[in-house]
Design a protein around this nucleic acid. Sequence first.
DNA 1: CAGCGGACGATACTGAGTACCGTATCTCTG
DNA 2: CAGAGATACGGTACTCAGTATCGTCCGCTG
Lengths: 228, 228
Amino acid sequence: MPKPPISRRLAEAAVTLFDENGYDETTVDDIAARAGVSRSTFFRYYRSKEDAIFPDHDALLARIDARLRASTADTAIVAITDAVRIVLAHYVDDAEVSLRRYRLVRRVPALRDREIASVARYQRLFREFVGEWLDDSPDAGLRAELMAASVVAAHNQVLRGWLRAGGTYDPSGPLDHALGYVIATFRHLEQPQEHGEQVIVAAFPRTASPQAVMAAIRRHLDARPPSS
Amino acid sequence: MPKPPISRRLAEAAVTLFDENGYDETTVDDIAARAGVSRSTFFRYYRSKEDAIFPDHDALLARIDARLRASTADTAIVAITDAVRIVLAHYVDDAEVSLRRYRLVRRVPALRDREIASVARYQRLFREFVGEWLDDSPDAGLRAELMAASVVAAHNQVLRGWLRAGGTYDPSGPLDHALGYVIATFRHLEQPQEHGEQVIVAAFPRTASPQAVMAAIRRHLDARPPSS
DNA sequence: CAGCGGACGATACTGAGTACCGTATCTCTG
DNA sequence: CAGAGATACGGTACTCAGTATCGTCCGCTG
């Protein structure tokens, strides 16, 4: 039975000691000793003390990047939702670690700031990706920014709900719901405009009969100003 | 002519030295000496080396908090847009410092992370505020999260455009435009739902004939799952 | 005046983080 | 096989951000 890799042992030691003794009271020497390696080795594996409890961040970023790169504009929405699911699954697959980390991050400002910086990296990746997908219309930059921020915000909302509830349910349903909300919000703004023609939006009850829908739309069309 | 307050002298010394010598190459002793005070005094005014170039963050947060608290649900959108304008004006009013800081932050990861954490604090403030404003519907939390993230993202987009252009124009027009976009996006989702009925959103070319619209909607309705 | 509180400087210390060197191990090549 | 090179690790010295403490000075109040 081979020992787990050093990086994992260090991460486990860090979370355990932070839990037992507190973040500020735990030194890097303590962590290294608990993992059975030297302090130098700690800094070979982690850039800083804070990074030890986010051991998979770079790998996860790389996975997301790969997933996004494997898509085209046609499959972009699927790719983004997949990428977000990859992130959430990462937390859910190791719920115990995620819950411990969550409790730590809530208590320690330095870890909170680190996590925020990590999330910003996901967001930047999404934004760059969405920016490539959007055309060069005047608001493309703004839309990319907004969509990336919204996707990440939705994910965080779902994740935090799951963590707050102690990881007791499968959060993929709520994530689908939240992403659907985001996508619905932005999709109506993403419809390609057909050669300068304008698009109108009409909303009506889901249970409306085709006749009722038609009547509502006719009213709407009758009320619009003459097209230029 | 009284000397400027110590906190300002320290902040100015920090930015100047970071510019001249680099962030990592500048010590807290250097900054304190340049400002004519001791190192102890530096840490009396700033919690950390990084904080020295964000001297007004807490004061700005307090102003925003006050502005938001002075509003009601009826004036909430105005309050949020005012709060965002307060943030932007803060940068614009001292453009030279903002531009120097921008250049520093782009070059130094530690400062970038610090800025990201600062922005997250604004966002949290907005979210809490929006959360109070929204009713207790199932998606209220999600909506508050999304709106706060969007407002902040829009502001950042505008601010970064202004900074990238060297602060050469008044960014309040673009900010109004971006906020208008965000508010339009969310306003249509804030329409009251009629007694538990679901709403679908359909978009179609403005010039579509009623018959074409009807055909498109019929296809959509035929494709939906049975309503529960 | 004396006493108090607050601001500041100086000093000692801790621990995160960096740089460097030596040693051990492994792999590859002749 | 031996030797060379690469790699991983431990140990050590160091820097500097950040913390705690103490002493001094100054301004204010009674």
